[in-house]
């Protein structure tokens, strides 16, 4: 039995321990947003967060996520409550066929979590593992920058009463 957190919910699963996490999430937990693209960790369509870092789950045995916290595109945001990057994706009409975009968003959100103001080179590096066959790279870059800006301005505007108390 392998136990882990899936989108902040504790889950357990009894499957062959070498089963890639991707297939456990898709076929066992029926979360279909993460996609199968290559099975070799080459295209990034299966990208999820493991303890906050972007990982290719088509090659990650489920045994390796014992006790870990896994986030999928479904945990990043929902149509009613979008992550700022998803908002930017929609506003800039990033997706074409859309198949790779869950993976693109998971790589991009992992980047912004550690690097709130990425340069073009930072973005190229972080997104290098994600292929888009429709050629939406230009739009993805644009939307990452827009999403970063939205997150940063929201952070600046957040009123934190504790901060005020500390100052006084």
């Amino acid at each position: 039995m392998i136990r882990f957190q899936l989108n902040n919910n504790p889950v357990d699963v009894d499957v062959d321990p070498d089963t890639p996490l991707l297939w456990v999430v898709r076929d066992h937990f029926k979360l279909k947003g993460s996609k199968f693209g290559c099975g070799m960790g080459l295209c990034g369509a299966c990208t999820m967060h493991m303890n906050g870092a972007a990982v290719r789950t088509c090659t990650l045995p489920v045994a390796a996520v014992q006790g870990a916290s896994i986030t999928t595109i479904e945990g990043l945001g929902t149509p009613d409550k979008l992550h700022p990057l998803q908002q930017a994706w929609v506003e800039h009409s990033v997706p074409q066929c859309g198949y790779c975009q869950s993976g693109q968003l998971m790589s991009a959100s992992a980047l912004l979590a550690t690097n709130p103001n990425p340069s073009d080179a930072d973005i190229d590096t972080a997104m290098n593992g994600n292929i888009c066959r429709c050629g939406t790279y230009g739009k993805i870059k644009l939307a990452i920058k827009a999403g970063a800006q939205a997150i940063n301005s929201a952070t600046v505007q957040t009123f934190d009463p504790r901060a005020v108390e500390t100052q006084s």
């Binding site: 929609v90 859309g98 869950s102």
Partner: peptide, 21 residues
């Protein structure tokens, strides 16, 4: 105008053939 399918395709809710259950 933004694409009509952008929301579904940015939230993992668009269904592709491989997602059939």
């Amino acid at each position: 105008r933004p694409r009509l399918d952008a929301l579904a395709k940015s939230t993992g809710t668009a269904l592709f053939g491989i997602d059939a259950e």
